[in-house]
């Protein structure tokens, strides 16, 4: 009986529920076809902007709302985890069940991954890896919540669509703009996925790259900068010395390119994903978007892992001396293996 009850929601078998939803979806599409919302790169402002002295224009944007939402989810998760972890510790390191157990398993896997790469520095590097991973993951997966990117306030927009009164609100409808009585409107969603805001990804990338340099300096001291300004072999080996010097400069450039690649990789994946969802929802209103939501689930996970793991790998490389045989750091070299 438990097996059949697992396949039921509200006493209806899941497959029939799915069928009903699909039919209802198709009917709704015929009554009220979805519209392609206006796509813009910068986050939409929800409040009137104020002018601040140094920062310039500042307003509460919908990506900030997503950020707060994600932060709230993370806080709840962390608080629940800390409580169950303390309880588990008190009970002699017993297993944790539920979401906290899943979080613990994830943390354990990430810790193991860090340990194989970072060695001695695992305990310092792991929090950065895990935080970046968790924050990006929660922000990416916000896209899967119904209503995100689709519920918001209407504002007058000459490129927009006419509106229609519904029982519990107002919605945009496709229709002839010239015959609209009440004017044309565009939608500003209350919550827009944070990862589609370059501010978030650039902030994360800046923190990651800066922390990589901080770890390098903590591990190697001033010697870390020899990686970028390598004059040690410039005069001893004329040809290769010049090449080494050039490589050092390239390393410097690559640190900046890391910021760009970090931020644009995450931003591009998630932003392209949400644009894809808009377009698919407009072209094939029924069913197709579900498949792409599944794709976005995978992309969100992979991008979170990639962002965190790259940060971890760069940090692990930074704490190891670049020219181990010339100015040796035996502990760092040992930590690498």
């Amino acid at each position: 009986m438990t097996a059949s009850s697992n396949n039921r929601i509200l006493g209806i078998k899941n497959r029939y529920l799915v069928l009903v939803l699909l039919i209802g979806w198709a009917v709704a599409y015929n009554i009220m076809p979805p519209v392609l919302v206006h796509i813009q790169l910068p986050p939409e402002e929800l409040t009137h902007p104020v002018q601040l002295p140094i920062l310039g224009k500042f307003a509460f944007t919908n990506t900030m709302a997503a950020m707060l939402l994600a932060d709230l989810i993370l806080l709840v998760l962390a608080f629940a985890f800390s409580r169950s972890a303390r309880a588990a510790l008190a009970a002699g390191a017993r297993a944790i069940s539920g979401v906290s157990g899943a979080l613990e398993a994830l943390m354990e896997a990430l810790y193991g991954l860090t340990e194989t790469n970072a060695g001695r520095w695992t305990r310092e590097i792991f929090p950065w890896f895990a935080t970046i991973m968790l924050v990006v993951l929660v922000n990416n997966w916000l896209e899967l919540i119904p209503g995100v990117d689709s519920i918001g306030i209407l504002h007058a927009d000459e490129h927009g669509y006419p509106v229609q009164e519904l029982a519990f609100g107002t919605t945009l409808v496709a229709g002839d703009a010239h015959h609209a009585a009440g004017g044309l409107f565009g939608l500003v969603p209350f919550v827009r996925v944070n990862s589609t805001d370059l501010n978030f990804t650039v902030a994360l990338a800046l923190i990651a790259v800066v922390m990589v340099q901080v770890f390098g300096i903590r591990a190697l001291g001033v010697g870390y900068f020899k990686k970028f300004w390598n004059t040690s072999t410039l005069f001893t080996k004329p040809m290769f010395g010049v090449i080494d010097f050039g490589v050092g400069l390239l390393e410097l450039v690559s640190e900046f390119s890391k910021i760009l690649s970090f931020s644009f990789r995450l931003f591009g994946n998630v932003f392209a994903g949400s644009v894809l969802l808009f377009v698919i929802g407009f072209l094939v209103p029924s069913f197709a978007q579900t498949i792409f939501l599944m794709l976005e689930f995978g992309v969100g996970l992979i991008q979170a892992v990639v962002f965190g793991m790259l940060t971890m790998v760069f940090m692990s490389q930074a704490v190891v001396s670049h020219h181990g045989d010339e100015h040796a750091d035996p502990e760092g070299a040992a930590a690498q293996h």
Partner: peptide, 13 residues
Amino acid sequence: ESIAIYCLVVALL
């Protein structure tokens, strides 16, 4: 894929 994504970002821009 991130290379393709850069292209996509440029296209979207």
